[in-house]
Design a binder for these strands. Structure first.
Ligand SMILES: Nc1ccn([C@H]2C[C@H](O)[C@@H](COP(=O)(O)OP(=O)(O)OP(=O)(O)O)O2)c(=O)n1
Ligand SMILES: [Mg+2]
Length: 883
DNA sequence: GCGGATCAC
DNA sequence: TATGGTGATCCGC
């Protein structure tokens, strides 16, 4: 902590200037285990030298500049807070903290186990001659992970191989082999199951086990279980792993990293122990707090440790959304999830490929076909059908773009996917890209293994088409019906003859619409009826889908719930106002909240308030005007128009034939099912790196700082129980292979119940800031707003890698072996917890918006935030906290 | 619903 | 020469 304080005088950070290599984006997260003793500065310099000037680097710089701008804006907002504002947020924050404290659950014992240098260790098992030599799994382009010998040189996961080789000329590269990793992963899970049949598998190499019962039944200490478990894993696989034990998953994960290579650390279920542990813990160690979040918290609030989250809590509540601020505070309290998450199903399936940047349309088309085929195969393997297709492109300059369409029909066939993907791609066309990806989401209920073939589809479409037409959305078919594609083709061809668009003839023959087609689509639509309807349709559509989701999906529930709450609160709160002068008068309730939208705006934000009231006025005028004029659609540039037309077209279709389609699909889909959900869950790892550099202040002591922390933790532990939590590496030496059978894992089925915390919707606070404007503007041509970050799911997470390793394609060149696809999802789970403590945050600084929860906060404080019946409890906790 | 972004492994 | 792939979630529109 001492070092931490020093960090307070951060300043602008020394990037840029004399030591450009220290810019935080060049910092590979060197905080990972095994980086002790590494000359970080040297690594930084090498990385910088090797990257400097590259397109990749330039893009990183661009992103960093953007974030720095955001930091600036946040600082400005901070500076604007008056004493009164701070007092207000102080109150809000304190109240929340007390409530969070009240939710602390120390009854469970969680163990997080994480294999050491997993892929590398497995490779070493296969080839013992690699032992003791610096080695990395991956290629010259990208490294998946590196063994500890290599880490001494600064080599690490996600680092391009050519840079790694620069750092360590003798580095041995081993290609990835996911089958192997999966095999060993299964072996480890077999051991995990012994201690917790419902363990939560994170990725291939990590898992969370609730060992509460085992400890109780066998009357043994958690550390003994950890020892035993690790020994068991070693015996079964010949691989070493590390474990962390704590009262919740978030901390267990942090603990498993403390004595990382082949060690363990136990954090007792004791509040003081937890608070002490967390007090000096760097925020970056927390899953969900990544490079950007760390940079922002450090840059704006000078927060380096979890404890400081509490110290700055009022600022956090003042500048971020409640869920975000709450997450941060919960981290400061060392809270995390302790329940057993419910099974979750995958929400999307995707695939993407990187290749040498090209603008060759034929080539791109080819890629698209391959992706569509693979994706379709994966979907059918799992019996999935989805209605939203998203195309992802990464330009030669590393800028990522996504374009999506939501269809009325659920699709899964290569043809369907391709048909729409081509349209999306074409709209972006002339473009030089280095990556193309496809993703399908919005699954039909869940599974729909049926519909795997054209046959059924054809029938469905046939029926569908009739309905669609009946509804008047004539053109629409293009997008949906498969069989109709013939018609579509014809149409397309015709148009092509008329309008042309040679470039696309080859690759996209028949399926693609030329610009002319788009236009005619639009025209047809207009003729058909639309425009007038559009407005109302949109509204309906939106509402409808929202409703549906709320009913069917837990994850979205919160959102809608939130909206409802907002409305209600509006009504409640401003009842007297709303009922009579809602539209005309805007008041600042309690001198903080807008009576119309609920946004909270401190009195000191004079300009913002004026702007805000102007906004409502404008809104009102606009409404009135539209009432008079009605619809009419302005169109932008041709290109843009094209896209819009496409999207709108789809939307309408959804509306018009939703019922019919749903019926059909349901029938088709229901049948199969089987998706063994194996709820793997995972957590992220918070270890990391050193952005430290960027903050000049702690540069010197940084490495030592955390190291010391580790030492402290160990000492403390030893002192109290004298047990060596740290194993000697002696115990395990991954040498001989021991492989055996495989197994599969089980899943967790408990249903957790939603607990207290409402879903974190991570919005930010939205304090209007004029500076926000600046920010927004900063965005480039298209837009770009600000950002946010989020999430960790210390919970579920699907598993990713999978054995397949399907040869990635490469176009111009090489290809690396990465997990190309994550099948194995058999179940996925990924849950996420919408629950409590997952990290996420959103930073923004943008305009103003109505922030519902903000109001909630306000109400909480000024009215009656705390449930009566809990007063006592709270009071007690308060006393506890005070002590 | 869409697009941009973060995070994790 | 050369900077990955898969999935989830958030936020502001
Ligand atoms: N950006 C990343 C990070 C990790 N992995 C893969 C390779 C790792 O072997 C595996 C597990 O990730 P870990 O973060 O647990 O890293 P290791 O197990 O390799 O090392 P450690 O000993 O630090 O756990 O996931 C990857 O492909 N890409
Ligand atoms: Mg690991």
């Amino acid at each position: 902590m001492e070092g931490t304080e020093g960090a307070a005088n951060v300043d602008g950070d020394g990037d840029g200037g004399d030591r450009p290599w220290q810019s935080y984006h060049t910092v590979y997260t060197t905080a990972k285990a095994g980086m002790e003793g590494v000359d970080k500065e040297k690594v930084q310099r090498v990385v910088y030298e090797m990257s400097k000037g590259s397109k990749y680097f330039q893009n990183e710089e661009r992103k960093e500049a953007f974030i720095n701008q955001k930091i600036q804006n946040l600082r400005i907002q901070c500076a604007k807070l008056t004493q009164a504002d701070l007092a207000h947020y102080r109150k809000v924050a304190d109240r929340r903290i007390v409530e969070l404290e009240a939710s602390r659950d120390l009854s469970r014992i969680w163990l997080h186990v994480d294999m050491d240098a997993f892929y590398a260790a497995v490779e070493t098992l296969s080839n013992p001659t690699l032992q003791g030599k610096p080695m990395a799994v991956g290629s010259m382009s990208m490294i998946s992970t590196a063994n500890y010998e290599a880490r001494k040189f600064g080599v690490r996961a996600a680092m391009p191989g050519f840079i790694a080789r620069k750092l360590c000329p003798e580095l041995i590269f081993v290609p990835t082999d996911f089958k192997k990793y999966t095999y060993y992963s299964d072996l480890t899970r077999k051991v995990f199951r012994i201690y917790d049949p419902n363990f939560i598998a994170g990725s291939l190499d990590e898992a969370y086990l609730d060992i509460t019962e085992v400890c109780k039944e066998r009357n043994v200490k958690s550390e003994e279980i950890a020892q035993e478990l690790r020994a068991g894993v070693y015996e079964e696989t010949g691989l070493t792993c590390s474990a962390g034990v704590a009262p919740n998953r978030l901390l267990a994960k942090v603990c498993s990293d403390i004595n990382k290579p082949n060690g363990q650390y136990v954090l007792p279920n004791d509040r003081m122990a937890v608070m002490t542990f967390v007090s000096s813990l760097p925020i970056r160690k927390i899953g969900g707090i990544g490079k950007v979040t760390e940079h922002i918290l450090k840059g704006v609030f000078e927060i380096n440790t979890c404890e400081q989250m509490l110290e700055k809590s009022c600022y956090l509540y003042a500048l971020f959304s409640q869920p975000t601020a709450e997450f941060f505070c919960s981290v400061g309290l060392g809270l995390g999830q302790t329940d057993s998450p419910q099974v979750r199903f995958r929400k999307s399936i995707s695939n993407e490929r990187t290749f040498s940047a090209t603008e060759d349309e034929v080539l791109l088309h080819k890629k698209l076909v391959e992706l569509a085929e693979m994706l379709s195969a994966d979907m059918q393997k799992e019996g999935l059908c989805g209605r939203t297709l998203t195309l992802k492109l990464k330009t030669a300059s590393f800028e990522v773009r996504t374009r999506a369409v939501t269809l009325q029909k659920y699709i899964s066939s290569t043809e369907d996917i391709l048909k729409h993907a081509k349209k999306l791609l074409k709209a972006e066309l002339p473009i030089s890209v280095r990556l193309i990806g496809l993703r399908v989401s919005q699954f039909n209920g869940d599974k729909c293994s049926a519909t795997p073939d054209p046959t059924q589809k054809t029938i469905t479409n046939f029926i569908t088409s009739g309905d669609v037409n009946r509804n008047g959305s004539s053109f629409p078919d293009v997008a949906d019906r498969d069989f109709v594609s013939d018609a579509e083709t014809n149409l397309s061809v015709d148009n092509q003859q008329q309008t042309s668009q040679l470039d696309w003839r080859d690759p996209f023959v028949g399926n693609y619409l030329s610009d002319g087609d788009y236009q005619s689509c639009v025209l047809q639509k207009n003729d058909g009826i639309e425009e007038v309807q559009t407005p109302s349709n949109d509204a309906t559509s939106s509402h409808h889908s929202g409703f549906t989701e709320a009913l069917g999906s837990t994850s979205f529930q919160g959102q809608f719930e939130g909206i409802n709450v907002m409305n209600e609160s509006k009504l409640l709160e401003g009842a007297s106002l709303n009922s009579c002068c809602q539209e005309t008068t805007m008041l600042w309730l309690n001198d903080y909240k807008c009576s119309l939208c609920g946004i909270e705006l401190p009195p000191s934000f004079v300009e913002e308030r004026l702007e805000h009231s102007d906004f409502h006025l404008a809104e009102k005028l606009q409404k009135e005007e539209s009432r008079i004029h009605q619809p009419c659609v302005p169109s932008g540039s041709p290109k843009r128009y094209r896209r819009d037309a496409y999207g709108k077209e789809e939307k309408e279709r959804v509306e018009n034939s939703a019922n019919v389609h749903n019926g059909d699909h349901r029938r088709l889909n229901e049948p199969n099912h089987q998706r063994a959900p194996h709820p793997t869950q995972q957590e992220k790892r918070g270890s990391i790196a050193q952005v430290g550099q960027s903050s000049g202040q702690r540069k010197a002591g940084e490495r030592g700082w955390w190291k010391d922390t580790r030492k402290q933790f160990n000492e403390r532990a030893e002192t109290s129980h004298r047990r060596e939590q740290r194993d000697d590496k002696s115990q395990a030496k991954p040498d001989d292979n021991t492989f055996q059978r495989r197994d599969d894992f089980s899943e967790r089925k408990d249903d957790p119940l939603p607990t207290s915390r409402k879903r974190p919707a991570f919005r930010e606070k939205r304090i209007p800031v004029e500076s926000g404007d600046v920010n927004l503007v900063v965005g480039r041509n298209d837009r770009k707003k600000e950002e946010r970050s989020n999430n960790p799911q210390h919970l579920g997470r699907p598993e990713k890698p999978f054995a397949d390793d399907r040869a990635p394609n490469k176009v111009g060149g090489r290809r690396d072996g990465f997990p190309s696809r994550g099948r194995r999802y058999g179940g996925n789970d990924s849950y996420r917890g919408r629950d409590k403590f997952n990290g996420r945050q959103g930073y923004s600084l943008d305009k103003i918006q109505t922030e519902k929860w903000k109001h909630d906060l306000y109400q909480d404080v000024s009215k009656d935030p705390i449930p009566q019946n809990e007063d006592d409890k709270i009071a007690k906790l308060e006393a506890l906290l005070a002590s």
